[in-house]
Lab assay of single mutants.
Amino acid sequence: MLDDRARMEAAKKEKVEQILAEFQLQEEDLKKVMRRMQKEMDRGLRLETHEEASVKMLPTYVRSTPEGSEVGDFLSLDLGGTNFRVMLVKVGEGEEGQWSVKTKHQMYSIPEDAMTGTAEMLFDYISECISDFLDKHQMKHKKLPLGFTFSFPVRHEDIDKGILLNWTKGFKASGAEGNNVVGLLRDAIKRRGDFEMDVVAMVNDTVATMISCYYEDHQCEVGMIVGTGCNACYMEEMQNVELVEGDEGRMCVNTEWGAFGDSGELDEFLLEYDRLVDESSANPGQQLYEKLIGGKYMGELVRLVLLRLVDENLLFHGEASEQLRTRGAFETRFVSQVESDTGDRKQIYNILSTLGLRPSTTDCDIVRRACESVSTRAAHMCSAGLAGVINRMRESRSEDVMRITVGVDGSVYKLHPSFKERFHASVRRLTPSCEITFIESEEGSGRGAALVSAVACKKACMLGQ
């Protein structure tokens, strides 16, 4: 009897593995994704193909990295998701002549009506938060230079001027797309009239992360975010950046690689679950690469896999709870928690219980395998993109072996128990001629924006502006 049951459990697990095998990517698959990513990057950089390229390769006008001589107080704003952060950054000489960066910050959550109302409502709310922060720190009387981390696709015309191309991540505030974001912020500050600010720089969160990590390690020339969304930036040779005049030196390019796949480059790798996630998203047909990796989508992918296993009578005796059938019910943090389970399955059992399920031991094991399959594919897909960037940098610099540091931020990278190990191992397999160091950014977005502002202020002083 026991043997029969054991055989049935083994057969069930084997069927589960057959279904989950769809998520496995072979090294040849990853090399294919990497080569296609490089081709799209090239198209994004070139003037004649930029418009139709899915990977936009947006110039950021960040050319210099901090040298350690900029000092002063800077205000930093960070808008990239449902939370908005205001930070005071003091850049100065530390002990023994070292450079020191001290920060104080406060988080504000953005109400739904500000995210989806008008641009005026959104930026009025942001300036209200700045006003509140300055009151708390008794700094209303000071006109501070301000660095703005704005983590949406922007076409820069200068370091302090950028046109919002399109909202992502659930934002829909009308009247912002096609307009200068810094102008919208300046107008809102003017409307309030109770404080003055000098907006000197606007950067993407990947750029802010790279600059913040450069402060720790001067070989950091790539910034990457794996959180709600997924994106990367890197220092490109100016001669390859056709959208900006000049051939000397390097400029940081914001790849906006989340949109890779929007022209069909990933079609052969998309599964039924991916198509369902895409169809029910706020932007169907867009940001397809990001939807395979980002935390906004990972939990939902797992939920759809679990429903398939229920329908195949391989999980929960073929019956799903009402909660499990509800879109968004299986949160991405559950994926991390399930994979963090120590082996007694308590954590998995508790999560499934909150979803109205009474799982068996085998159910718990199957749910864990589903989570591992989805998150491992995410790590491997992400590795193909980064390997594409790094191999490109090595080739354009004609280096036999390139040493490089990548600064990384984002909740999936930082909080998932195995993502970074799987990701690092896969990147290294795909970049055999590179020695890569990964560092995690601390308060990256805010500190990085302030350091970019410090560079901009120093330049302005040198130019006598």
Results as ranks from 00 to 15, higher is better:
Glu265Pro: 02
Asp205Ile: 00
Glu51Lys: 05
Leu276Gln: 06
Leu185Tyr: 06
Pro59Ser: 01
Ala53Asn: 01
Phe133His: 05
Cys434His: 02
Arg447Trp: 07
Asp198Met: 14
Ile439Leu: 13
Gly299Val: 01
Thr116Ser: 08
Asp365Lys: 13
Met139Gln: 09
Arg325Val: 12
Asp409Leu: 02
Thr103Met: 05
Ile159Leu: 11
Asp341His: 12
Arg358Phe: 12
Ser109Pro: 00
Val89Leu: 15
Gly72Ala: 03
Gly68Leu: 13
Glu221Phe: 15
Ala460Gly: 15
Thr332Trp: 00
Leu25Met: 04
Gly294Val: 02
Ile163Asn: 04
Lys140Cys: 03
Leu185Ser: 00
Pro145Ser: 15
Lys142Arg: 13
Phe152Asn: 04
Gly117Pro: 03
Met115Pro: 02
Asp187Gly: 05
Pro153Leu: 01
Ile130Arg: 01
Arg428Cys: 10
Lys142Ile: 04
Phe260Asp: 04
Ser281Cys: 09
Glu22Tyr: 06
Arg403Gly: 12
Lys15Leu: 14
Glu435Ile: 09
Ile293Ser: 02
Glu265Leu: 07
Gly170Leu: 09
Lys39Asn: 14
Val310His: 15
Arg325Cys: 12
Gln287Asp: 04
Ser336Trp: 00
Arg368Asn: 09
Asp132Gly: 04
Thr209Trp: 00
Gln286Val: 14
Glu372Phe: 12
Ile439Cys: 10
Cys434Gln: 04
Glu312Tyr: 14
Leu292Gln: 11
Ala378Lys: 05
Ser426Asp: 08
Leu47Thr: 12
Lys296Ser: 15
Tyr215Ser: 15
Gln38Arg: 09
Asp267Leu: 10
Asp78Gly: 01
Ile436Trp: 04
Thr82Asp: 02
Leu314Glu: 06
Thr65Gln: 15
Leu430Cys: 02
Met251Leu: 02
Tyr108Phe: 08
Asn313His: 03
Ser398His: 09
Glu442Asn: 15
Asp217Arg: 07
Arg63Phe: 10
Ser418Ala: 13
Gly94Leu: 13
Thr60Gln: 02
Arg250Tyr: 12
Cys371Glu: 12
Leu276Ser: 10
Gly117Arg: 06
Tyr289Asn: 06
Arg7Val: 13
Cys434Gly: 08
His380Leu: 12
Thr342Cys: 14
Leu307Ala: 11
His137Gln: 13
Met462Lys: 12
Pro111Phe: 05
Ala282Gly: 14
Ala201Leu: 03
Pro284Trp: 11
Ser453Arg: 02
Leu20Arg: 08
Asp3Cys: 11
Val244Glu: 01
Gly295Ser: 01
Val86Glu: 01
Asp160Ala: 03
Val203Gly: 01
Met139His: 12
Glu14Arg: 13
Ala450Gln: 05
Tyr349Asp: 05
Gly249Phe: 06
Leu430Trp: 08
Ala456Asn: 15
Leu2Glu: 09
Glu248Asn: 04
Phe133Val: 01
Thr206Lys: 07
Asp113Val: 11
Ala456Val: 15
Ser336Glu: 15
Ala370Ile: 07
Arg429Ile: 15
Ala456Ile: 15
Pro111Met: 06
Thr118Ile: 03
His137Ile: 15
Ile293Trp: 03
Phe84Tyr: 06
Asp78Phe: 01
Ser100Met: 07
Tyr273Glu: 07
Thr103Val: 02
Thr361Glu: 12
Asp363Val: 01
Leu2Phe: 11
Val89Ser: 08
Lys459Pro: 15
Arg333Gln: 00
Trp99Ala: 15
Gly178Ala: 08
Gly162Arg: 00
His380Trp: 12
Gly264Ser: 11
Trp99Lys: 07
Asp274Glu: 06
Tyr234Ala: 00
Leu134Ala: 07
Gln219Tyr: 14
Ile293Gly: 04
Glu177Asn: 01
Tyr413Lys: 01
His105Pro: 08
Gly356Leu: 13
Leu415Asp: 02
Glu17Leu: 14
Ala379Thr: 07
Asp124Leu: 07
Val62Gly: 02
Ala387Ser: 05
Glu9Ala: 13
Val452Ala: 15
Leu266Pro: 10
Glu93Trp: 06
Glu17Met: 13
Gly343Pro: 11
Cys230Asp: 00
Ile390Leu: 11
Lys143Asn: 09
Tyr273Leu: 07
Ala460Gln: 15
Met238Tyr: 01
Gly92Leu: 06
Arg308Val: 09
Thr65Trp: 15
Lys420Gln: 12
Glu256Pro: 00
Pro432Glu: 08
Gln219Ser: 12
